[in-house]
């Protein structure tokens, strides 16, 4: 199946009241976030997408592919399933070495150049994680961050799934912004369930959930894109602090002040750049 677009048609919330967002479309290349407090139905929404719900789940939502519903008895060939879901609970159970495991998956997917595909997958994963994954490591020996990175890389490259759903990956110890940058290169649909303001602001749009219902949809505008850039500075400072803590150093007044004043001056620089950009735009 050649997927161009998937659409989510709103159903009802937990209270049975119709959802305010009645429809949203996802086109290839889109990055979308689903946000809202814990228990508001974010995971249910991506489960509906994964199942191609057709008014047959509690939310009564309908998922369309290229404007058509998926027939009830439609069953995907395992090697062609268009959706990969990586959740907070998803894990590798196999104790095979990484290389062998990826080879099995690539074979089932009918890949031609298996060796090259495995290397590309590892290369991708290793850009997301701090510690490099080597082919000979057993899957079960991978750290949390390595596992998450490999799950994503495998879904993107070997699985080549056109639609990838990522449920709260920010807690997994991977480079989030690097992940987003890398993912943008592949023409796919990425849906993030997230509490992370940067992931939300780097998305093309976001769906706000409340009480099981899609409440609102916000398209990321120019102003918010600038805000995302500004937030990066704060993130960078947090990362610096993390480095200090990890290295066993004390956060003295000096260290703290140095970082925060660094943040203040980079904020001034950021404001200047932004002004310059806006001036250019109006000119």
């Amino acid at each position: 199946m050649d997927i161009q677009k998937i659409s989510v048609i709103g159903g009802i919330g937990k209270d049975g009241i119709p959802e305010k967002v009645t429809r949203f479309d996802l086109k290839m290349g889109d990055i979308v976030s689903i946000v809202g407090p814990t228990g508001c139905g974010k995971t249910t929404l991506i489960n509906d997408i994964e199942l191609f719900a057709n008014k047959n789940t509690p939310s009564e939502r309908k998922i369309l592919i290229n404007d058509e519903p998926i027939p009830d008895d439609f069953s995907f060939d395992p090697s062609k399933h268009p959706i990969a879901l990586i959740s907070q609970h998803t894990n590798f159970l196999s104790d095979l070495p990484v290389g062998e495991f990826l080879e099995i998956h690539a074979k089932i997917r009918g890949a031609e150049n298996i060796e090259q595909m495995i290397n590309e997958t590892l290369n991708f994963a290793n850009q997301l994680t701090g510690e490099a994954i080597i082919k000979e490591t057993a899957m079960t020996e991978l750290s949390g961050g390595q596992t998450r990175s490999l799950l994503i890389a495998d879904a993107v490259i070997i699985g080549n799934s056109p639609i990838i759903l990522l449920d709260e990956i920010e807690n997994a110890g991977i480079h989030r912004t690097k992940a987003l940058k890398l993912l943008k290169k592949y023409q796919k649909i990425f849906v993030f369930v997230t509490h992370d303001p940067r992931i939300a602001l780097l998305s093309d749009f976001r769906i706000i959930m409340k009480n099981g219902a899609m409440q609102k949809m916000i398209t990321t505008n120019e102003e918010e894109k600038w805000a995302a850039l500004g937030l990066k500075k704060i993130d960078d400072v947090m990362l610096e602090f993390r480095k200090f803590i990890r290295a066993g150093e004390e956060i003295t007044d000096n260290v703290f002040n140095e970082q925060i004043s660094g943040l203040a001056s980079s904020y001034q620089l950021y404001l200047k750049k932004r002004k310059l950009f806006l001036n250019k735009k109006t000119a």
């Binding site: 998803t90 196999s94 990826l102 099995i104 997917r109």
Partner: peptide, 17 residues
């Protein structure tokens, strides 16, 4: 199915068939 990787799900399904 929510507990295992996409890859293992695919392999599991393939081997059942």
């Amino acid at each position: 199915i929510d507990l295992v990787s996409q890859a293992e799900r695919e392999v599991f399904r393939y081997r059942i068939l």
